[in-house]
Design a protein around this nucleic acid. Structure first.
Length: 494
RNA sequence: GCCGCGUUCGUCUAGGGGUCUAGGACGCCGGCCUUUCACGCCGGUAACACGGGUUCAAAUCCCGUACGCGGUACCA
């Protein structure tokens, strides 16, 4: 009979950055976890721009955030760009909403007008206490002034703010999906400003009003918000709203343990903005994979996951509660892993970009995809191709001195010369032929094959390390090989 | 200072009272493969912060201490 299903409220997660700068790598992780959770639950991800601080507003920050999410493949369901039925999605465009609720809180006695000057507040803080339960009655506000006076001052447009009236003797508690039960005494909470004197809401009010109005079911954000969550809980109670589920992610620390600030990160060679990773040529999937594992794990021993795969296995239950240190080494490893997962044409695309950047002219007969196939297992970054394997596209302009010392022997010139001659005359320029010719030459001179292989590699690449020699020669092509061999003989035999 | 959160190899972590002489990954070191370098494979190095409880039994539960981090704005 009672077969009708109870429909749980839709999962709606928001990512709510403030456009005060480019998207930070830690911010991306917050977005990622929100995205993964939403996808896994069949819910949606909402992007909300929290631009209530006009003094710190950065014009192109919003665009940077959007670009960064896109680069990583994190699709936003609702936001300033795609719209949605809960818009607008910029807080600066929803201002009237906040003021309305702030005033209703004043009316219900949960908030009050305060006229204190910055100086008088500074004075208050000198004597230690905060503006709150213990001190509000000694300040200049609607609790200490008659309603008539307050009315007059308001009408006269006197500068003021609206403050939350924190109740006394209350233990505020909430359940955090990651941290568990958290409780705080109301005495330790300030009478937070809700509406600033410029009429804009503070984060606390705006966030609560918007999460409610946008039907947000889960608030997933950084650990640094835990201390303000009780303020939000209070607001939900006063407004008579159901608070969303909250989950606070542990912070990302710098490799030395401190906060991963711009300063500390850059000192340690860690890019701080998502756009930097992009510019440096990191694979978005690798960044995502690395970030996902900074504080979360699937519970199995697999570690290499693409975004789509992460969507299948992510859960908040497996997010740890301890902060994690950023490890560039591991990111690089993930990068190599994901680079190798790429289809060759996709890899070639990445590489092409760096070739251009390094000013390398690609000779026509060199098939870039062949080169990619050749060097792929030796890559950690796409740009390695343009650097370590530059010789795949341009004749080496120097020979590694250590390599020369070790591999270029008295008979090298003669052998390399001989091999060059053979390369000129063979009909098929394929690996088996290249190899038989070399071994045959070695036998003829009664030396080991290595006696020729090493000098040839050195001559052709300028270095002693690289892919399988015969495959390399094949990819380079006959003319290039012969030219380089002869050139090397000329230079190294002096 | 006050409030809060945290603490397993150098790093990311598994672990939810006995199966932990603590498992995996990165890094590092050795070996195999091999024409080199990688890849791959095999092996090694290395950790339960400390002190008290609770329990037959604690890395796992409780309480302290230490340390780290965060918050303490008309910033988010």
């Amino acid at each position: 009979m009672c077969k009708q299903a109870f429909n749980p409220p839709a999962v709606r997660v928001r990512f709510a950055p403030s456009p005060t700068g480019y998207l930070h790598i830690g911010g991306l992780r917050t977005a990622l976890y929100g995205y993964l959770f939403a996808r896994r639950q069949g819910g949606s991800l909402v992007l909300r721009i929290e631009d209530t601080d006009r003094t710190r507003f950065v014009a192109d920050a919003e665009n940077d955030i959007v670009q960064a999410l896109q680069w990583c493949g994190l699709e936003v369901d609702e936001g300033p760009e795609q719209g949605g039925r809960y818009g607008p999605y910029r807080q600066s465009e929803r201002q009237s909403l906040y003021v309305k609720y702030a005033e209703s809180l004043v009316a219900s006695g949960h908030a009050y007008y305060a006229f204190d000057t910055p100086d008088s507040i500074a004075e208050l803080r000198k004597t230690s206490a905060a503006y709150g339960i213990g001190t509000r009655l000694q300040m200049d506000n609607s609790l200490t002034q008659s309603s008539e006076i307050v009315r007059q001052r308001l009408d006269a447009k006197e500068s003021h703010v609206i403050r939350l009236c924190v109740p006394e003797h209350e233990i505020i508690r909430f359940h955090d999906r990651i941290k568990g039960e958290v409780k705080v005494a109301s005495e330790s909470i300030d009478d937070q400003v809700l509406i600033k004197s410029d009429g804009m809401p503070t984060y606390h009010l705006a966030n609560v009003v918007d999460d409610h109005h946008m039907a947000i079911s889960h608030v997933i954000r950084g650990d640094e918000w835990i201390p303000s969550t009780p303020k939000h809980i209070l607001l939900y109670q006063m407004l008579g709203w159901q608070p969303p589920v909250v989950a606070h992610l542990p912070l990302i620390l710098s490799p030395t343990g401190g906060k991963l600030s711009k300063r500390s990160a850059e000192r340690q060679g860690i890019p701080i903005n998502v756009r930097d990773y992009r510019a440096l040529g990191y694979e978005p999937q690798a960044v995502v994979n690395f970030l996902a594992f900074l504080g979360w794990n699937p519970g199995s021993e697999e570690e290499v996951f693409g975004l789509k795969e992460l969507e299948q296995v992510f859960s908040l239950e497996r997010v740890g509660s301890a902060p994690a240190q950023f490890d560039l080494n591991k990111l690089n490893w993930f990068n190599g892993q994901h680079l190798r997962r790429l289809e060759i044409p996709a890899l070639a695309d990445r590489v092409r970009f760096y070739l251009e950047k390094e000013g390398i002219q690609r000779p026509d007969h060199h098939d870039l995809e062949e080169v990619c196939l050749l060097v792929r297992d030796r890559l950690e970054h796409a740009k390695d191709v343009a650097r370590r394997f530059r010789y795949c596209f341009a004749d080496p302009d120097e020979f590694d001195p250590g390599g020369v010392k070790k591999r270029w022997k008295a008979d090298s010139a003669e052998l390399v010369q001989g091999y060059a001659a053979r390369l000129e005359s063979i009909k098929a320029f394929d690996e088996p032929t290249l190899e038989t010719q070399l071994r045959d030459l070695a036998a003829q001179h009664e030396v080991g094959a290595g006696r020729i292989i090493h000098p040839v590699r050195l001559a052709v690449s300028g270095t002693t390390a690289g892919p399988s020699l015969f495959a390399l020669l094949r990819v380079l092509g006959r003319d290039t090989c012969v030219r380089r061999l002869r050139n090397a003989v000329r230079i190294l035999s002096k």
